[in-house]
Design a protein around this nucleic acid. Structure first.
Lengths: 250, 250
DNA sequence: TGTGATTTGTTCGTATGTATA
DNA sequence: TTATACATACGAACAAATCAC
């Protein structure tokens, strides 16, 4: 491929860097460039297409945001070959299950931070609180050494004032709730969206700032329907798919 | 906010443009900048933070990719105030339902293209075909004048050879299947991911190239479990949330 | 071990094109 | 027509991380 003149390009509606992006994307999906392979250097790509290094960089950046490649300063840019985890969203399933296999056993959660504070409006509405305080917990979950998700959990503070400590001890919501006499809870609703990661999220998830996160906003209730936990979980989209458990046919 | 010296920044790990991005993002989510408002010009942002216009542009570009803002050449950059549609994924619900409301009535599908061809491996596996041909249909769905999703549908060609024509006539999968004597079908599985849009998808969905699409990969079956339709739907993430119908408690 | 070369990351400067007001 | 504002692209410089010798 050669980059056309600016005059030709302007009529076609494609800029040089977009053409280069598509070209490189093709080489990756055709497996001409395979996971672990090193991409040519910015300079050589720039020379190959007869453009400035900035232009080549912009093309490369677009691929990096898709998680197709990963740049390492001083070293080079490499084709990523990350395995995809499938996280099941269901009535009772809260596990991370690997497509490949036995990784699930090594899935582990960790509490980053917790606080008791006034309930934000949205949270109060979801938890059915007219007014009052909530326990907010920030957590992460990893499978093996790969971070999978970061989550923010809210519980009514009057019902479960020290849920954070239990969670810190057990490393699992289910176990922490059991310690408070709650043996079962159900997923009442889940809404999924996607956006770019914030700087903090990117750091916690070990992805590039600007990479995509899947955002799942969910409400867990007791079997009788009482709201228990409102949570917002952000998954690294390049590593995770959400598997929606089908509703049971009546 | 002031951008610290490069020396100070290098220890903090944040570049100037990232700091500006976060700052602007905060102003938008705090509603200090509201939908329809105009962002300060690149030049004034650059001056405000004492950086080069390129640096300001890089910060602004990150917000544009999130769909938070929209740049119009010659005019300015504006805060987008797109309404969010909630698309319900459930056992039988296939409608697009607006948060606001009455938009749902104006939801309409359109067939872009169809062909009968050999089943790709993945599709054959999902549809339970050992070998054979499939009908592939490319479609779009809009609510009002806003494109919501583009979808690729696959049906076994021996079962429903002219499903494409029926779909073209009726504009609805449900109606098209009814015309072929199929009165009911169920969602058997859904897997959701997210990635950046391709150039084609961006054009069809009226989003910026590089904006995010939610990708839902699903299998519909007859009530007896026979695979009926395998489909991959791409939603404009900046306009759509997927609402997962909770499984019924036994 | 250390030193220089390589490679990516960030920033500034400048120029030109294109769309809009 | 003119001015404004965003889009793309080139050139230069330096920083930071890594690698090869």
């Amino acid at each position: 491929m050669t980059i056309p003149d600016p005059a030709t390009r302007s009529s076609s509606g494609y800029s040089a860097w977009r053409l280069i992006t598509e070209e490189l994307r093709g080489e990756i999906s055709d497996s001409r460039l395979r996971p672990g392979d090193r991409l040519p250097t910015e300079r050589s790509i720039a020379e190959r297409y007869g453009v400035n290094r900035h232009t080549a960089r912009q093309a490369i950046a677009a691929l990096a945001e898709d998680g197709l490649i990963e740049s390492r300063r001083g070293s080079g840019t490499f084709i990523t070959g990350e395995s995809v985890l499938v996280h099941r969203i269901g009535l009772r399933t809260r596990m991370v299950r690997s497509l490949g296999d036995e990784e699930s056993a090594r899935s582990s959660g960790r509490v980053l931070d917790s606080a008791i504070e006034a309930a934000p409006e949205e949270v109060a509405r979801r938890l059915g609180l007219t007014d009052g305080e909530v326990v907010r917990i920030e957590s992460t979950r990893s499978a093996g050494d790969q971070p999978i998700s970061v989550g923010t959990h809210w519980f009514a503070a009057d019902r479960l004032p020290d849920i954070a400590d239990s969670l810190r001890r057990t490393g699992s919501i289910t176990a922490a709730l059991r310690a408070h006499g709650i043996d079962d809870y159900l997923r009442a609703s889940t809404v999924v969206g996607a956006r770019h990661a914030t700087a903090t999220e990117a750091e916690l998830l070990a992805i590039r700032p600007g990479a995509i996160v899947l955002v799942a906003e969910a409400l867990d209730t007791l079997p009788d329907g009482t709201p228990l936990q409102y949570l917002v979980t952000r998954f690294a989209a390049q590593r995770v798919r959400l598997d929606i458990e089908p509703p049971h046919a009546d």
